[in-house]
C-alpha cells in the first residue's frame, strides 16, 4: 500500500534533516542533538529572530524558508505532529541575538500549546518572545466556540513579509505588527483528491471514492469539511476563490498576491490550469494581482490537491514581499 522512498518509517524526519544539511551546508546548520535547523550565520546580530515550525511532511515548509530575509530557524516535529517545547526552546536559544524572537505558529491546538510552553520557558529565562498565530484557512468556521481557522499555505507569506522587515533591523514590536497585518489580510482554501500516508501509520489517512474529492482540506491528511463529486478544474478554482473572496472581501481595485499551492502529488501543469481560472476571476472582480506564486510551498506529503491563497497588499506589504530573500525554496 505504502510506496515511499524511505528506510525506516520512524527515521524519516532524522534522515530528511541529514539530507538537507548535506545538500545545503552554505545555508543551514543543525542545532546539535535537536531537530532544529537554523541559518548558517545564526544568531544574526542586531536582528529580531523568526522561528517557524510544526510537524514535518509540509516540505519545503518550514526549513526551506530559513535564510536571509525570511526565517532564522525552523523546528521540525515528527510527521504531522507539532514539535515539543524543549525543541522549540533550543531553537529560540540558537537564533536569539538579544533583539527578541518571533514565533510563527499555525493555528492547531498542538502547535499552539507546544509553542506556548516553549515561550513560557524562554520568558522565564528573560528572553523576549512574541507569538503570531496564522489562521488563513476559510474552510473552517472561525468563532469563539471553535478552535478557529487553521493555518495553511498563507503562513509562507508571513515568513516572507515579517522576515523582510526583521532583516531591515526593525524591532520585535514592529515585526510582530506586520505579521499581524499579514494574518489579517491573508486567506486560503484547499481541496484534495487523494489522501496521504504518514510513514509510521503505513496506511492512507482516509478512504475516498474514485470520483470524489474533499473540499476544505487542511495540510495533515485529515478529511475536508465537505466531500463531493470530483469537478472540473474551473469549477474547483471558482469554488475555492469564491470562499476566499467572501471572507476577505477585497474592494475592486485592491492589490493582491496570489499563491496556488500544490499539496504534493499534483503536477505543476494542473496548478497552472487552476491558476488560469483564478486569474480570470480576479480580473473580473478588478483585483490587481501584483505577484503570483504557483508551486509547492506547503505540502501534505503526497496528497493530490491544491490550495488557493489571496493576500491583500498595501504599499508596505508590497515592498516587503518584493524585498530580497535567499532561502532554499524562496529566492527573490
Amino acid at each position: 500500500m505504502m510506496k515511499k522512498l524511505i528506510n525506516h518509517p520512524e527515521n524519516v524526519v532524522q534522515e530528511m534533516i541529514e539530507g538537507m544539511v548535506h545538500a545545503h551546508p552554505q545555508r543551514l546548520k543543525r542545532v546539535p542533538g535537536t531537530n532544529v535547523l537554523v541559518r548558517r550565520d545564526a544568531p544574526v546580530r542586531g536582528k529580531v529572530a523568526l522561528i517557524s515550525g510544526g510537524g514535518s511532511g509540509h516540505e519545503p515548509s518550514h526549513a526551506g524558508y530559513v535564510g536571509a530575509g525570511m526565517l532564522d530557524g525552523a523546528v521540525l516535529g515528527e510527521v504531522f505532529t507539532s514539535p515539543t517545547p524543549d525543541q522549540i526552546l533550543e531553537g529560540i536559544h540558537a537564533v536569539n541575538s538579544g533583539k527578541g524572537v518571533l514565533l510563527i505558529i499555525k493555528n492547531y491546538t498542538g502547535d499552539i500549546m507546544n509553542f506556548e510552553m516553549a515561550a513560557e520557558l524562554a520568558e522565564a529565562e528573560g528572553i523576549e518572545v512574541k507569538k503570531i498565530v496564522v489562521n488563513d484557512d476559510v474552510a473552517v468556521e472561525d468563532s469563539t466556540y471553535t478552535t478557529g481557522r487553521r493555518g495553511i499555505a498563507g503562513t509562507v507569506f508571513v515568513h516572507k513579509i515579517a522576515g523582510a522587515l526583521a532583516e531591515k533591523g526593525a524591532s520585535l514590536e514592529e515585526v510582530h505588527r506586520v505579521a499581524e497585518k499579514v494574518v489579517k489580510q491573508v486567506r486560503s482554501m484547499g481541496m484534495a483528491m487523494t489522501p496521504c500516508t504518514v510513514p509510521a501509520a503505513g496506511r492512507p489517512s482516509f478512504e475516498i471514492g474514485e470520483h470524489e474529492m474533499e473540499i476544505g482540506i487542511g495540510i495533515h491528511g485529515e478529511p475536508g469539511t465537505e466531500r463531493s463529486r470530483l469537478a472540473s478544474a474551473d469549477d474547483i478554482a471558482s469554488k475555492l476563490v469564491a470562499h476566499v473572496l467572501d471572507d476577505l472581501k477585497p474592494a475592486p481595485g485592491d492589490k493582491a498576491a496570489v499563491m496556488i499551492n500544490g499539496l504534493g502529488a499534483t503536477p505543476l501543469m494542473e496548478l497552472y490550469i487552476i491558476h488560469k481560472k483564478v486569474s480570470e476571476i480576479l480580473a473580473e472582480k478588478n483585483i490587481q494581482v501584483i505577484d503570483t506564486f504557483v508551486g509547492e510551498y506547503m505540502t501534505s506529503l503526497e496528497m493530490a490537491g491544491c490550495s488557493v491563497t489571496l493576500l491583500k497588499l498595501d504599499d508596505e506589504l508590497t515592498e516587503l514581499l518584493n524585498a530580497p530573500a535567499d532561502t532554499i525554496a524562496w529566492k527573490k
Binding site: 510537524g55 516535529g77 515528527e78 505532529t81 507539532s82 514539535p83 515539543t84 517545547p85 524543549d86 525543541q87 492547531y108 491546538t109 498542538g110 500549546m113 507546544n114 506556548e116 510552553m117
Partner: peptide
C-alpha cells in the same frame, strides 16, 4: 511526555 509526544496530546 512533553519532550516525546508532541502534537496536542503531548502538552496535555
Amino acid at each position: 511526555l512533553l519532550s516525546k509526544v508532541g502534537g496536542a496530546s503531548g502538552p496535555l
